[in-house]
Amino acid sequence: MIESAATLTALRRRIASLESRSVAHHAHVPLGHALVDRALGGGLARGRVHEFFAGEGGEAAATGFSLILARLAGPDAVTLWLRPAAAARQAAPYGPGLAALGIDPAHLLVGAMRDEAMLLRAAVEALRCPALGALLLEIRGRAPQLDLTASRRLSLAAEQSGVTALLLRMDADPTPSAADTRWRVAAAPSAPLPGNAPGMSAFDLTLLRHRGGRDGMAWRLIWDSERRQFGDGRDERDDHEWQGRERDGGAPLSRPVLSFPAVRPVAGRAA
């Protein structure tokens, strides 16, 4: 029994050494929101792959959220945003809007790639460049080429260089991957300004998966583009709305939930 325990420990150590080759990059990118940071053990792990799934019609919210995270990961470094050419033709990133969100457009490079294979190759190439602050990889649809192997390749490249990779998935369901965390991001009603005008950007976050940590929690975050940090997004109206949703079987606001009902896809657990 003792022997097997020793073997187990050795195996565990070996697996740990296989999983993360360099411990040097173990820094975190704090989001500035106490609860989220505590749940993640200090923030998003640097030099890892993080997946963000856009909820229905939440493409702009997911894009905005991951751009903000890219900015937090490297405030003065260049962020590369790789997009499918089809998406780039339709809606272009808008500099004045980025600047208004607190992201310096001068530090943004936008690359449009013809197809999925090229997108993934370019992503690996970019992740090998340690000068990059963060990589934002936008992928639309099911993306059959982004399988476990491809995502493992991305995560290895990210670990070696210490560049944080943010995978932005549109119109897709979670599949097994080597990502460190996996999120669902949707737009949330903002706290209105006087005169019922839309306020600061608000996001509904669900942590679908967290490697080596607890998952299944949901928060509402508000991005303060002025102070460039996340705040807690609760006001009375939201509370009211969320109570309603809680009755439907959703998650309460800013409170870790242990039992997450069947809303979450089974595949999310699989990886």
């Binding site: 260049v78 490079l109 449009a112 790639m113 190439e125 970019a126 460049c129 000068a131 990059l132």
Partner: peptide, 28 residues
């Protein structure tokens, strides 16, 4: 300086692969 150089090399490689018009910066 080295960081600038690293980014420039990355831009070159991506531009050669995807075409020079495909890797862009936003100017006001």
């Amino acid at each position: 300086a080295r960081r600038e150089e690293g980014i420039a090399a990355l831009i070159d490689r991506l531009s050669i692969r995807a075409g020079r018009m495909q890797v862009q910066r936003l100017h006001p």
